[in-house]
């Protein structure tokens, strides 16, 4: 899975990246995480609020720093689908 962290580099975006990293580690999912900081690139994901997290190009979280458990739940949910 390819996970994108969308945000222009505010503290919340860095927190989000850290939370996602922990969740991926704990869930033992095979995923690569990369940050998208350029606003033009971010807009391609059609979000209006940052920080946001996208799995394989699909925005799953936007406008808040998720908790590790929330990300794990989303990972489990998307893994089954």
């Amino acid at each position: 899975m390819e996970i994108a962290i969308l945000g222009t580099g505010c503290p919340k975006c860095r927190q989000t990246a850290e939370v996602v990293r922990q969740a991926v580690e704990q869930a033992g999912v095979d995923a690569t995480i990369h940050k998208v900081e350029d606003i033009k690139e971010i807009m391609k994901f059609k979000v209006m609020t940052t920080p946001a997290v996208a799995f394989d190009g699909q925005v799953r979280i936007s406008g808040k720093v998720p908790t590790v458990d929330e990300v794990k739940a989303l990972l489990a949910h998307d893994g089954k689908a």
Binding site: T49, V59, R60, I61, G63, K64, V65, E70, A73, L74
Partner: peptide, 9 residues
């Protein structure tokens, strides 16, 4: 002041 944001679950 930011709100709860949204999680699409």
């Amino acid at each position: 002041g930011a709100g709860p944001g949204e999680v699409s679950v």
